[in-house]
Write a protein that binds this DNA or RNA. Sequence first.
RNA 1: GCCCGCGUGGUGGAAUGGUAGACACAGAGGACUUAAAAUCCUUAGGCCGUAUAGGCCGUGCCGGUUCGAGUCCGGCCGCGGGUACCA
Length: 853
Amino acid sequence: MSRYAPSEIEPKWQSAWNEAEVFLAKRDESKPKYYVLEMFPYPSGRIHIGHVRNYTMGDVVARFKSSTGHNVLHPMGWDAFGMPAENAAMASGGHPGTWTYQNIDTMRDQMKPLGLSIDWTREFATCDPEYYGQQQAMFIDMLDKGLVYRKNATVNWDPVDMTVLANEQVIDGCGWRSGAPVERRELTQWFFKISDFSEDLLEAIDGLDNWPEKVKTMQRNWIGKSRGLQFAFSIVDAPAHHDRIEVYTTRPDTLMGASFVGISADHPLAKELAAENPEIAAFCEECRKGGTTEEAIEKAEKLGMNTGLTVRHPFDTSWELPVYIANFILMDYGTGAIFGCPAHDQRDFDFATKYGLPINYVFEPADGALNDKEAFVPLKSEKVNYIRGFAGEEVQTGEEGVNSAVDFCEANGVGHGVTKFRLRDWGLSRQRYWGCPIPVVHCEACGVVPEKKENLPVRLPDDVTFDKPGNPLDRHPTWRDCTCPKCGAPAKRETDTMDTFVDSSWYYARFTAPHATTPTVKEDAEYWMNVDQYIGGIEHAILHLLYSRFFARAMNETGHLPDKSREPFNALFTQGMVTHAIYENAERKNENGRTIYHYPDEVEERDGDVFVKATGERIKVIPSAKMSKSKNNVVDPVAIIQQYGADTARWFVLSDSPPERDVEWTASGAEAASKHLARVWRLAAEVGNAPETGKGDEELLRATHKAMFEVTQGIESFGFNTSIAKLYGFTNTISKSQAGREAKRFALKTMAQLMSPMTPHLAEEMWSMLGGEGLVAQAPWPVPDEAMLVEDTVTLPIQINGKRRDEISVPKDMPKEEVEKLVLENDAVKKALDGGSPKKLIVVPGRIVNVVI
RNA sequence: GCCCGCGUGGUGGAAUGGUAGACACAGAGGACUUAAAAUCCUUAGGCCGUAUAGGCCGUGCCGGUUCGAGUCCGGCCGCGGGUACCA
């Protein structure tokens, strides 16, 4: 072979690894274990470049850890339940399962050529009955422990299709298929009691030392611990059943600025009033319009209706406040009722302005004047001057004001201080087919009864159709029919399936014993857990990671995970997303009136405008968005792999952009990556041409040790792009070096090792060409000799008043005084001083000198 | 709306509070070649300048802290992610 030929060497080394079972993970108490996990993919159909980036990063870590003496577990599986499979079945017939397993086969075939160091014997899909049956077993254990319960919750209801919609299926407040305005409707649903763990989940964040600060901040805010006051307003001329309205407030210090009380349209009082008053009933209906997302509710126009009722202010019974029903108050949070203080809350301010309610300022800036055109909402940590305060100092922080107000109210019999969390219980019911069936039975006599464990898995039926909207399990002629596990009487199965977040909340634990007949196996979980390095997208910062943290706790309490695994991920790295422009057809919609999106390779650019190649239709380009199948802006890496090889693709996705940052995908550069790898290969192939000994052996040796140090540092800190930059530099050094054969051979063998996590096939090829022993994948990582890293002289830049003017070269450990002397003799410095002496002379040893004049 | 990020040459980006632009892409110029491909070399933030002299400006915008700010603090602007049924 006379040139770099990835299509020949890549399959060759992949077989060599397979034969040597290099990536097979076996328990081995003699070595420290290391569990690397990348968030498993949804089998959407084809891998995209974001997958390549994600899994290559994990592979670099896995291979690096393996060569530093760790027993590595690096598995792969499929997050296989979910809506797209049902959508595909609706769009083109067929069964979601067939679609899913075909996608998995395709994607596995696309991934394997990448040469990832994965133990494929542990592969599973969450839609395998073997997996979801164990999930059902855990559900039953959690039900026994009181961690699961049923209550009412709101869903998006499509009144035309008579079906529940996912938030994604609500577009501009309307159902995606019917186009009808969506309503919020209550349904009895299953919940996990994640709120039992609010405090624990919050406090334990402090211990997550190797998690990104931003993720921890987001989780803290999401859990949202707040201290406030819960108290009741008594109602004037109270209707039957309701003499008081219980409210919760985080700002009791603003009680003297209250100007109205607002209740949710789903509040029991609102419902009672609606029953007698058609106008109120109509308004409550109006409030239920629109989707369930926080965003939709927050952004919707704030509407209220005066109920005609009034309540007494707790401090002054002659002061009456009107009671409004308002569309922005959620029954799910707090008590479903608030008091409004327009002076210090912008939303309340807008509401008060709209409905002509008074605005009474409670405090003003400690220095400066109020602007009464808007609410005054300072940080809670900021000192303010209370002009209508009732507890604590006149000038105090908002936080102090709140605490004094709670104490005062408690002392005066107005409610009590309570701690609340924003975090709500996790609703896991889905009215859909393609998910894990909730293993319970509804019996007329016994009520809700869990299925017997020996009857698990409760399998999804295969004979289902998707020609009608709604849940096929509900329509199935016989699947629901069963007998009560308790009394044996005829009963009906639950038709709700589980949220797919349940599937992904414990897969990391299942990988430690993927084919066991219990959810986990004690010894395996004990050995392999926790995940030492978890890698995934920042888009999962809250939901997936929080649910997983909860689930690990629940599994611990039901005996499926050891105590140490209550926090399952020791270290987390959130890689950036690969983004790409979205190409929206500007001239045409599809038959349902929906926007048409085009794939990147379907369009072309002409004179600054973008057109569809086939039809010439104009395209509206929406720049830089997360790659998403529904927007068709995914880039297929298979062509790159076929043209240049896996190593080029791997090298390319790691180089240039820092792993944590989003990257806008551009295809230019793959060619250059390939050229570079060919150059490195050539250097290795030509090493024999070098003379026996040469000039610069010592220099090359030093450069080699420096490369070991710098590349290792990059890998350890997830700076793969900088590691690669150093490898480019090292390549240039070798290429220019006049050193002899042995020095070059050593440099290139080191190069092979340092490149092996990123371009493992090329590394093996070089290793074997250069006479390396065994597989480079199993060779120990090169460790630099500290003595070779020390530089004798350093270049010190000289700044004058903070601007670089000159530089001097001095021995590395020259004392400060001598450096100062040298600096004062420097021409540029002398010229600037003009005979005078400097105001200040700053010498930072080994770094910089600054002369202040 | 709210929470969390990000913003540096034509482009991707580098830079423990210490020489801004490493390393690369695209570009320009050159060598080799009958030619091309491949390869190698040189060059490059902007402005002024005959300039490898010298000077000024420069990390989204405005201000602050510091001997020194891309980096820390405050306020804006723009973009991205999440917002509990997309995964």
